[in-house]
Structure formats: C-alpha cells, structure tokens
Nucleic acid binder design. Structure first.
Length: 317
DNA sequence: AATTTCACG
DNA sequence: ACGTACGTGAAATTA
C-alpha cells in the first residue's frame, strides 16, 4: 500500500502514476489486440461457472470483467469496446445497490427496507441515521463515511478495517459501526445468525440454496476463524446477487428468442449486462431488459436497474 | 512457482 | 495478544 505514503515523499506520486500507466499498457493496450479472433474480428472471453466460491461467474482469456473505468486514462481503454457495426449500439444495464437491497431483504431489517421502499439514496439515508441528522443536513463527508460502512457491513468489516479505509480514528469508526447496528438492528442479528448457522451446520447458503462450506468456521486460530466468519456473512449476499443476475440472463435469453431479436447479450460483469443492440430494437428491448432484471428474483424491497446506450461501452454507462 | 500489485464488481 | 473488509484474473517481480 504505497498510497499511504504519498504524503511522505513527492516521488511516491510519480511511482503511482507510473504503475497505473504500466498496468494499463501491459494488461489492456498491448494484450487485448493480440487476442482478437481473426475469424470474428472480436475478442471472446470465457466465462467460468464453477470457479468463484460465491456462485459468481468469472472471466478469463481475456478477463472482460475488469476493464478499466475508474481513471481518466483507464476510461480510454473502455471506449475501445464498440458495437459490431453502425447499425448497432452498445447497451448497458446494471442493478442499483443490489447487495444492500439483498441484505435488507434477507435480514428483514425494517429500517433499511423502509429506506429502499421510500426511494431514498441509501448512503444518504444511512448517514442521516448514524449521525442523527435530517436527510437534508447530510454533508458529503457524512455520506462518504456512511457509504463505506454500508460496503463494509457486507464484508463483515471491523472498526480497524473501517478506520483504515476512511482514514479516521478507530474510536470514530467504532462509533459509526455501533450507531449503524442501533439503526439497523436486524442486520446485526442477521450477521450473528449466519455465523451461528455456519458453526452448527458447517455451511451457509444463498436465498436460492447455493451452499458454501466453511471448514474453518470453528477453527481455534482466531485469524483463520475470523476469515471464515466474514465468509459466512458475505457469501449469502454476494451469492444471492449472483443467483439473481443468472436468472435474469436466462429469462432475457428466452425473451430475446421469442421476439426474434437481432440484438445480443454479450457481457456480464457481476451486476451489469451488456448488449450489442440493433438501433431499431433499442426502444423495444430497454423495458424488456429492465423488467427481466427487476423481476428475476422478487425481494421484499424494490429491485432497480439502470440502463443506457452509447457508441462505446463507456458512453453506455 | 510463489508473491505482489492492481484492474474490476 | 493478535490481526484485521468480500469475490475474481493478469502481469511483473521475486526467489
């Protein structure tokens, strides 16, 4: 973690920029063109259905689930992904806050369910709750901290991990987490119950019944055991999201067949589906995709998907 | 061959 | 006292 030292010496910034550029060049700019299939003139990834322990897909040769988007130069790489010809457009649809909606639904936490049902921005709503202020009085810093807690909760975060992530005192992080569990008591209960269930049965499972065995859940080594406990919390969340998008993919495949569409589903990136969409079909398929994704696996909270089109993968977002 | 680093959700 | 946020894959570096 060099970034932590960036204030110590000016050279660190230069090293980080160098690393960013060498990563983009070696992994994407140099590599991807060599993987174009000459017959189809495209890059074709492989999706693995039995690699990720949570039930997610993974992608290799090349990995198209980690195409850059977070930095300016990285986004230039993403622009290289374009539709097959000018009669097509790239269409991207992604689930909104799907893992938080899932934890709200399966923990049956009334407060978080209410936040989603009222259509609030979940990080703002969480900030208002943990800082005890009105929604309108949530500052950007408060929202940022609440967002980190929301993410951290899904991973089974500790006060130490949160303080590291946010660059705040551990005591402050602890207060945030304590307030979080006061505001969302059933989420705390859910986490405890997942660990208990795993200790008793040796596994945890998604809403659809996909299991992950946790052989270390009763280990006498606290580090090893802690890791298994976080797995017990996280896997049902991440795995249920994986189950949901897979069901959506099957449903949409059928729907596209039935409508004799020329548009094609071409990529899946965990909570996102990308389509090579014929221009004449865009307005037809948009609602089909949105509804296919929303209705794939009904939850006790609304499931939302956002959709966009563009001349390349970046613009489609 | 194992580890480190970094790209993504 | 101890270590410390989930899941992947690819390239470069270390040994």
């Amino acid at each position: 973690m060099l970034a932590k030292l960036s204030a110590k010496h000016p050279i660190v910034e230069n090293i980080l920029v160098y690393r960013e550029l060498s990563k983009l060049k070696s992994t994407y700019v140099d590599a991807l063109p060599t993987m174009i299939n000459p017959r189809t003139n495209r890059v074709h990834t492989s999706y693995n259905q039995a690699v990720a322990v949570t039930g997610r897909l993974s992608s290799n040769n090349p990995n198209l689930q980690n195409i850059p988007i977070r930095t300016e130069r990285g986004r230039e790489v993403r622009k290289a992904f374009v539709p097959r010809n000018p009669e097509y457009t790239l269409l991207s649809a992604d689930y909104s806050q799907i893992e938080l909606r899932i934890i709200a639904a399966i923990s049956e936490d009334a407060n978080m369910i209410d936040a989603f049902r009222s259509g609030l921005d979940i990080h703002t709503a969480t900030a208002a709750k943990v800082y005890g202020v009105e929604i309108a009085d949530v500052t950007p810093d408060m929202r940022r901290n609440a967002k980190s807690v929301n993410f951290g909760i899904i991973y089974g975060v500790s006060a130490f991990g949160l303080s590291e992530n946010l660059g705040i005192a551990r005591s402050e992080a602890k207060t945030l987490i304590d307030n979080y569990f006061i505001q969302y008591p059933s989420i705390k209960k859910y986490m405890e119950n997942q660990v208990k269930f795993a200790q008793k049965t040796g596994y945890v499972q998604t809403l659809m019944g996909r299991k992950r065995w946790l052989k270390d859940i009763n280990s006498s080594n606290a580090v090893v055991r802690g890791y298994a406990e976080r797995n017990a919390i996280n896997m049902p969340i991440q795995g249920t999201a994986a189950d949901m998008i897979k069901l959506a993919m099957i449903s949409l495949h059928k729907t596209f067949r039935e409508h004799n569409l020329r548009s094609r589903m071409i990529l899946q990136v965990h909570d996102e589906l990308v389509f090579d969409a014929h221009l004449d079909e865009v307005e037809t398929i948009k609602p089909l995709i949105i509804e296919g994704m929303r209705n794939a696996m009904p939850l006790a909270v609304p499931v939302e998907a956002e959709i966009g089109t563009g001349r390349n993968w970046l613009e489609a977002h």
